[in-house]
């Protein structure tokens, strides 16, 4: 089990990697989305907000997220640190993502563009 602060740190790493990647920012200038990250085994909520290609992070919930990423704390920390890719946990049900299929695929691509081989 990971702690809330570990998830926060992993999300900061993810945010920083995104914001330092000019190509990724350019790719996503048209995609304004609010993404909630929720742990199932501890009390931990975060919100990632993508606006005009910039990604910001805050602790706590969002009232109207476009996507909700739900998993156990360990998987969430692994995911945002880039230790695991989202595909396997998504397919085996450990990771649930609520949102449109197009948005889910796009989020998956962003993650792979940051952490892929």
């Amino acid at each position: 089990m990971a702690e809330h602060c570990e998830i926060t740190e992993s999300l900061k790493v993810f945010r920083d990697n995104f914001n330092q990647n000019e190509r990724l920012k350019k790719m996503n200038r048209d995609w304004d989305r609010v993404i909630a990250i929720k742990a199932t085994d501890i009390d931990s909520l975060h919100t990632l907000t993508l606006r005009k290609g910039d990604l910001s992070l805050r602790e706590g919930a969002s009232e109207t997220p476009d996507l909700v990423v739900i998993s156990d704390s360990e998987t969430l920390a692994d995911l945002f640190y880039g230790d695991v890719t989202p595909t396997e946990p998504y397919l085996n049900g450990t990771l649930k993502i609520q949102g449109s299929e197009d948005d889910i695929i796009r989020l998956d691509f962003i993650s792979l563009m940051i952490w892929g081989e």
Binding site: P86, E88, L91, D108, F109, L112, G116, E117
Partner: peptide
């Protein structure tokens, strides 16, 4: 970067 994971979907 993407294909090794996409092929699992």
């Amino acid at each position: 970067k993407t294909v090794p994971e996409m092929v699992k979907m």
